[in-house]
Amino acid sequence: MASIRHEFYETDERLTISIFDKGADPAQVAVTFEPRSLSYENGKKTLQLAPLKGQIDPSKSDYTVGKVKIEIRLAKVVSGRWGAIVGDSPDPLSTATFTPSATAPVAQARQNRKNWDSITETILSSDKGASSGEDPNTGGDAAVNDFFQKLYADADDDTRRAMLKSYQESGGTTLSTNWDEVKKAKVEVKPPEGSEWKKWAA
């Protein structure tokens, strides 16, 4: 049986495999999805991928047959990057369970709120020079405090993580709500124009 050339790319939610089987007849192509495996068949051409690096949801996975290649889309059960299609040992993401960490979101939320209070105070202390009379957009410390607390309280987990990570890593010079962008690398310090960033000694 001939093996087939294939490649993949992924996002946190999905892994897409391109199988290069030119001129494949959709009626002859069969793709079988299992939680930790994938099989492709087209006559004598087959491709078996197991065990998958992470767990997938077969009901949400699908494929399309094109003139040059077959595109198979695997829906990940747990969000995150695999780095490879298959893995000899189970990926930590695939074995993640929600039961033991049922209280984790609550504890994390408390920790986040505590951190955010500190961040808000830092922002307010750095903005004391502005008053309602000087800047019509300034509603006073209470208004700023309420704004940030409401923004944080209404945000989802990814947005909260983005806000905390960007603010802390940038030394308070950047506040981002885009977790997809922030999680890729450390957030750079971007001091205001004409200012110089200096790290305080611990």
Rank of each mutant, 00 (worst) to 15 (best):
I4C: 06
R5K: 12
E13L: 13
R14P: 01
R14G: 02
R14W: 07
L15R: 02
T16M: 03
I19T: 02
K22H: 09
P26G: 04
A27Y: 04
Q28T: 10
V31H: 06
P35H: 11
P35W: 06
Y40K: 04
E41G: 08
N42G: 00
G43N: 14
G43C: 08
K45T: 13
K45S: 14
Q48P: 00
A50R: 13
L52N: 05
L52Y: 03
K53R: 15
G54K: 03
D57Q: 11
Y63F: 15
G66E: 08
V68A: 12
K69E: 15
I70K: 03
I72N: 02
L74M: 09
V77F: 09
G80W: 06
G83L: 05
G83N: 08
A84S: 15
I85C: 10
G87H: 06
D91W: 04
L93T: 07
F98S: 12
F98Y: 14
P100G: 11
T103S: 08
A107I: 09
A109E: 10
R110P: 01
Q111I: 06
Q111N: 10
K114C: 00
N115I: 14
S118L: 15
S118N: 12
I119G: 03
I119W: 06
E121S: 14
T122F: 09
A130T: 15
S131F: 06
S131D: 14
S132Q: 14
G133E: 15
E134R: 14
P136H: 10
G139Y: 07
D141Q: 09
A143I: 05
V144G: 02
V144I: 11
N145I: 04
N145S: 15
N145V: 01
F147C: 05
Q149W: 04
Q149V: 00
K150M: 11
A155N: 06
D156S: 10
T159D: 03
T159M: 13
R160E: 00
R161G: 00
M163K: 01
S166C: 04
S166Y: 03
Y167S: 02
Y167P: 02
Y167L: 02
S170P: 06
G172D: 05
T174D: 05
L175D: 04
T177P: 01
T177L: 08
N178R: 13
D180K: 13
D180H: 10
A185Y: 07
V189I: 15
K190V: 12
P192S: 12
P192T: 08
E193G: 10
S195T: 12
S195K: 13
E196T: 15
E196G: 07
K199R: 14
W200L: 11
A201C: 00
A202V: 07
A202L: 09
